[in-house]
Amino acid sequence: MRRYTRLYWEFAKSHMKVMMEYRIDFLIGVFSVMLEQFASIFFVKVVFDHIEQINGWSFYEILFIYGIAATGRSIHQIFFDNLWTLGWQYIRPGKLDRLLIRPVNPLFHVVADRLHQDGFGQLIIGLIILGTAIPQLDLVWGAAEIGMLVIMIISSGLIFVAINLFFATFSFWMIDSLPIVWAVFNMSDFARYPLTIYHKGIRMFLTWVVPYGFTAFYPAAYFIDKSGYKEFALWTPVAAIVCCVIAYAFWNRGLKAFASTGS
């Protein structure tokens, strides 16, 4: 574990050096992602200019859900973005072989191969949203609440990672599963709004099958009493751990299958 932490640091240092060399591109990346997020928040704001609440949720409460999703996703985007490229960057051109002949865990290597600059834009905008929403909510914030918020955000990020990892793993059998990963990732858009607005079937799906509900709605619901999900929301970290374990086990299976067919 300590070895991998140090190794990650070395990888990250190299990436940062490169990023600093292309400063303009770094800024374009950060700025464009911020604008992208800002556009979708502004949409919600425009709608709320004309109404009071959606399904009992005020503008700032929805903003809060949004903020948790954006911050959680930034963890995924900054550190684990390379999972998207497993098929076309590693398996198709045979570059995965390069990782398999090194004395490190291949998943670690894939993940460490990239640090995604645009994710920093996501992080900044996520924190800004949270900073805007939280003071407007009728909550008491103590150390325990802040600690819980951090845990919830990390869990949210891990669920994003686990879901992407799980579906990227299909690349071991079909060379590039990017379309699947992309389609599944788009489901995370559901989680921007209170799950209670959806049909029951969709709610169940986002809770038990592809658990994007735990990336935003449930963590936010923990802090908002009237939601009625306060207790259920406590399962968020457990959901994150279970997702990661399942995804990693599936990855290992995929890797094994890859070793017997060799692409």
Binding site: Y22, D25, F26, G29, E36
Partner: peptide, 18 residues
Amino acid sequence: WTVNVWGVRVLKESLITF
């Protein structure tokens, strides 16, 4: 003129969407 083509595209998409 730019290297980060992807960033520019995201920028364009957001402008249009909005």
